[in-house]
């Protein structure tokens, strides 16, 4: 069993293994089994379609954290050219959980800021599982200010379980670092497009998530607290994460219904981890399209619209007071 796949993906993986096996047989023995192969491939397609057309919110939440999912550095490789990574907050350290740098998107210079998770154990630890410390957010802010100075649009790629809950992080002002980014991003004089590419974990995600557009990949999630965290507080048991995921409505489609998302970018059948290239291509197309629109506005108009956009967040009733 390949541990890189989720349990509900197993039937697909098994079928694919069978197909692969048959292909090898065909190659070795020169027997014509292409009909059988095609049939199996069709079956695999149908199976994947049927599994993925009926995913629960919890299953989508698992895909958003899929260990094989493309990460920020993969997108940097596939969507951008001439990437120059820039390091450090100039005050304390460089935080590998956030990657920043200059790059080109279809020739246009941009600043890219994104959370970065690790693939193997060593890299996971190095990237701190994509959980930034204050220096990460301050590095991001330094880059945003630079982008503002040189009139470069900012592309944020969000993929984090949350800001790191550690002793050092608290000592160095995790709260302040997040708050400062929210404050500055609201008035930064350059276009900002935020995209959730995987896990949008609470304040740790939002700290690079305030801007003119919010895009979500189809199988990404965004929530105020992880389903496990919510379950352990409200249901007093982390096992109820499935219920919590549903109650909070954390998937891209449900968040679009709530009115926060400008576009949900579709992923290839079976999820982004099955086809990096195609996922990146879809996202790239969307980014270019939104950027073109944003660039048409004057900076003052852009900021007014951004402010009004932020001010519409919320749902409440109001009655007249005598």
């Amino acid at each position: 069993m390949d541990l890189k796949f989720l349990d509900f993906e197993q039937p697909i993986v098994e079928l694919e293994a069978k197909i692969e096996e048959l292909r090898n047989v065909e190659f070795d023995n020169d027997i014509n089994i292409s009909d059988a192969l095609r049939q199996l491939e069709d079956k695999c397609q149908t199976l994947t379609e049927s599994i993925f057309s009926d995913l629960s919110d919890w299953q989508i939440s698992q895909i958003s954290r899929h260990p094989g999912r493309p990460y920020t550095l993969d997108y940097l490789d596939l969507m951008f050219t001439d990437f120059h990574e820039l390091h450090g907050d100039r005050a304390y350290a460089d935080d590998p959980a956030i990657v920043c740098g200059l790059a080109r998107l279809e020739g246009q210079s941009v600043m890219v800021i994104g959370h970065q998770k690790g693939r193997d154990t060593k890299e996971k630890i190095y990237r701190n599982f994509g959980m930034p410390r204050p220096e990460g957010y301050r590095k991001a802010l330094r880059m945003m200010k630079m982008a503002e100075r040189f009139s470069l649009p900012i592309i944020c790629l969000i993929d984090t379980p949350g800001a790191y809950p550690g002793i050092g992080a608290e000592e160095r002002g995790q709260s302040e670092a997040i708050a400062r980014n929210l404050f500055e991003m609201a008035r930064l004089r350059t276009p900002i497009i935020c995209t959730v590419i995987g896990e949008g974990g609470s304040g740790g995600a939002l700290a690079i998530g305030v801007g003119d557009r919010l895009i979500m990949l189809e199988y990404s999630t965004y929530s105020v607290i992880s389903p496990e965290g919510c379950a352990s507080i409200l249901w007093k048991s982390a096992d109820k994460a499935k219920l919590a995921a549903e109650a909070m409505g954390i998937t891209s489609d449900r968040i679009r219904e709530q009115g926060f998302v400008d576009e949900v970018v579709r992923e290839p059948l079976g999820g982004g981890h099955r086809d990096f290239q195609k996922t990146a291509l879809n996202l790239r197309e969307a980014l270019i399209r939104h950027l073109d629109v944003l660039k048409k506005d004057s900076i003052d108009d852009l900021l007014t619209k951004r402010y009004h956009r932020i001010m519409t967040f919320g749902s409440y009733a109001e009655e007249a007071v005598k």
Binding site: A179, S202, V210, S223, V224, I233, M248, I310, M311, F313
Partner: peptide, 26 residues
């Protein structure tokens, strides 16, 4: 902190309150 029962509606109040403070600062 944020009110879990309002999910993203509450998370985004962080952005809303912080953005409003920029006006006060300006």
């Amino acid at each position: 902190g944020a009110r879990m029962q309002e999910s993203l509606f509450s998370l985004f109040q962080m952005a809303k309150t912080s953005a409003a403070l920029t006006r006060l600062s300006d």
